[in-house]
Computed example of a mutant assay.
Amino acid sequence: MSLSHEIMKNICGYSRAKYSTWFYYRPDHILFDVGEGISLALRNMIYGIDRIFISHNHGDHIGGLPGFIKSRASSMGDITKPLTIYYPKGDTYILQFKDYLDLSIPKLPFVLTWQGISPGDQVQLHANRFVEAFASDHMGTLSLGYKIIEVRKRLKAEHQGLPQNDLITIIKEQGREAIHEEYQKNLLVYSGDTMPLDTSIVQKAEVLLHDATFVLENDREEKTHATIQEACQLAIEAEVASLALFHFSSRYSHQQVKDKIQQMITENNIQFPIHYIYPHFYPADFKQIYVESQKGEKKENNDQS
């Protein structure tokens, strides 16, 4: 099983433009945005969440917070487990929302920490893994995207291709650090609501989770959200291993979304898997459009997240 497929298996979430968006990544116990319905969908799984990363202050991305916090304080689970909420630093609307929650849900049984975060800031998850915030482009608001990055080691370029005995000799004389270098690997990139991200942000990501609100560019009156075509072109240029599209406008049918993705695959000879979330119920599932089946026929498959 590829790493990108393993990552997709561990994402669950929901997204419908204007109504609700949230995504839970189980291995790192983190939540990207917290739209309505999350507590209903996850139920006691909410106790597995240690950190929430908010992309921006629109209601469809933060409207689920009151129910989430109330449920976490009173449902069947570890009600004393701390929770940290990260949000775009300086966003006064979110701070006002925080004040409302402090007043309406007093005396929480767990420590709730609110932490403002700016582009380039990093939050450590494990010894070799962290979340990094980056600026996104959405309606001129304070808006962030987030990516999970893993620090890895690899053989330095000048030592690649050397015989094993030569490498052992260098290690004995200079230490293992002499032949290895650290590099950062993009595991999962979450765009939040945005126009197409810069290629450098998502370069060679295992999974790019990108806004694709519009099927047709002519339907976009302002530069606020990406189109399916733009997200696919970004994934091609950035050489990602897998693309997951979300935040479709309710003006489009499931068939229109699927047909547009299939068109992009055919016209661009796309070889990486494209997943898309077209929800009708909680919890939502990601669907995947396969490039080719073994029999050479295109097919679609539901991949329950």
Rank of each mutant, 00 (worst) to 15 (best):
E267C: 02
F97I: 01
G64R: 00
S39M: 04
N165S: 14
I261N: 01
I38V: 15
E181K: 06
Y24H: 08
Y252I: 04
L125G: 09
G13M: 07
N302R: 12
L187R: 14
H61L: 01
Y276W: 05
Y47S: 07
V240Q: 01
H138N: 10
D303T: 12
H126F: 09
S118E: 15
T194Q: 05
V34W: 02
F272Y: 03
I201E: 10
P88W: 02
L216S: 11
N165D: 13
R176V: 15
D99H: 10
Q160H: 09
Y183F: 15
D285L: 10
W114C: 07
P66Q: 02
D99G: 08
K223C: 12
E36C: 10
S253M: 09
G64L: 00
A238W: 01
K223H: 10
K295D: 15
R26H: 10
G90V: 07
S249Y: 03
S293W: 01
L103S: 14
K258Y: 05
H210M: 05
I289C: 07
D28I: 12
T84Y: 06
Y282E: 12
T194H: 04
E182M: 11
L65Q: 01
H247G: 07
D50V: 02
E239Q: 09
P27F: 02
A212P: 02
G140C: 07
I274T: 01
D137S: 13
L245H: 00
P283R: 07
F272S: 00
Y278I: 01
A41R: 03
E221I: 14
A135Y: 08
G192D: 00
D193S: 14
L95V: 13
P196Y: 05
E300K: 06
N57R: 13
G59A: 14
T113G: 06
L197T: 07
T141E: 11
R129D: 10
Q256P: 09
M8E: 03
Q115W: 11
I38D: 03
G77L: 06
E177V: 07
Q288C: 14
D211Y: 03
Y14A: 02
G90T: 05
S200W: 07
A241C: 09
D219E: 09
P279G: 04
G116K: 03
P283H: 06
K70N: 13
L42G: 03
K81C: 10
Y47D: 08
E217H: 05
